[in-house]
Nucleic acid binder design. Structure first.
Length: 203
DNA sequence: CGCCAGGGCCATA
DNA sequence: TATGGCCATGGC
């Protein structure tokens, strides 16, 4: 199936998702997306929300404050998201990377995928999530769900990250809105699909 | 109760 | 280069 056909199918059936929600008024707003991209690594989004709520309640809502807070304290604040020791370190590393730029706007414009990937704790999916959802740059995000849906709909290509990313980027219009929406739709579709299959199994 | 989530690192072979 | 162990909490 053509990817654009799949996109339209998902959009018609599930509806627009408007990802990535960043409603907690972090400063800058996009820092919540960056932090979320780290916190969600192999973790249920509900748990990530608890950690983000804790960050806001404790007013650790900027890269600078993330750098200043003691690591042990940061660990406890983000604890609900799991893997909290490595994630606390990764948040600080990302905050430091952003801090190397004059301001977040400069980071958005000038950060490269290569530099993100050289950063400890940031792999391809986290890098592309930051690039797409925080920096508004046209990088398609591949995740476990994307690999599953590609298999389910028989696009018929290898499933390694870079191959899939290139395939998506070459098959759909270079439109940030579509990139964001398509990835979100794939995730939502997969979640529902999982729920359904579990219902059936439990019967 | 067991499975696993919007991954990535590192050690081994 | 390719597996496998590890990180950890909470939803369902």
């Amino acid at each position: 199936m053509e990817l654009m056909a799949l996109y339209k199918e998902l959009l018609n059936n599930i509806g627009s998702q408007e990802w990535w929600p960043a409603s907690r008024n972090f400063s800058p707003i996009e820092w919540e997306i960056c932090a979320g991209a780290i916190l969600t690594q192999n973790t249920n989004w509900k748990n990530v929300e608890k950690a983000l709520d804790n960050l806001k309640e404790n007013r650790i809502d900027t890269p600078q404050k993330t750098l200043n807070i003691k690591t042990e304290l940061l660990e406890q604040i983000i604890r609900p998201s799991g893997f909290y020791k490595q994630k606390a370190e990764r948040l600080k590393i990302l905050a430091k990377l952003i801090h190397r730029f004059k301001n977040f706007s400069e980071f958005k414009k000038n950060i490269t995928r290569e530099v993100l990937l050289e950063t400890k704790g940031i792999g391809p999916e986290t890098a592309d999530s930051i690039l797409l959802y925080a920096c508004n740059r046209p990088f398609f995000v591949i995740d476990a769900y994307t690999k599953r849906i590609v298999k389910a709909f028989g696009v018929g290509i290898p499933e390694d990250y870079e191959t899939l990313r290139k395939h998506f980027e070459n098959s759909i219009p270079k439109d940030i809105k579509i990139y964001k929406e398509f990835h979100a739709l794939i995730v939502e579709w997969s979640k529902k699909e999982r729920k359904q299959s579990r219902k059936i199994i439990n019967k």
